[in-house]
Amino acid sequence: MTKDYAKKRKTARKSNKRSSRQSQPSRKPMSPILIFVGGVLLTLFAVFLWVLVKKPEIIKEVLPAKEDNQTVKTQDKPQEVKAEEPSSEPTFTYHETLTNKEIKVDGTQAVQTSSNTTYIMQCGAFRKSEDAESLKAEMAFIGFQANVEEKDGWYRVRLGPYSTKRAAESDRHKLQDNNYQDCRIW
Rank of each mutant, 00 (worst) to 15 (best):
I103S: 04
F48Q: 11
G153Q: 08
E169D: 15
S129I: 14
N116M: 09
R158S: 03
D171T: 09
A137V: 07
K55N: 14
V157R: 05
F126L: 12
P32D: 07
D182Y: 13
A110C: 01
E67Y: 01
E67N: 03
A83D: 15
D182T: 15
K17Y: 04
S88H: 07
E130C: 01
M30E: 11
P64G: 05
I120S: 02
P32W: 03
N100V: 01
S15G: 08
G39C: 07
K54C: 11
K77Q: 07
P78F: 02
D177S: 15
R172H: 02
K77R: 05
T99P: 01
S20A: 04
N16L: 10
A146I: 04
L44Q: 08
F126W: 14
Q70H: 02
E61P: 00
R18Y: 06
N16P: 11
K17T: 13
Q112I: 12
E102Q: 13
T108N: 13
K54L: 15
L98V: 10
A110N: 07
K3T: 13
V72W: 02
K77E: 06
V62P: 00
I103G: 02
K82T: 07
N179H: 07
E89M: 07
D177E: 15
D106N: 11
L135S: 11
L34I: 10
A110H: 04
Q112L: 11
K8Q: 12
D106M: 00
T74H: 05
I59L: 15
K60N: 06
Q122P: 03
R21C: 03
Y5R: 14
K104I: 06
A125Q: 09
S19T: 05
I59C: 05
V40D: 02
K55W: 05
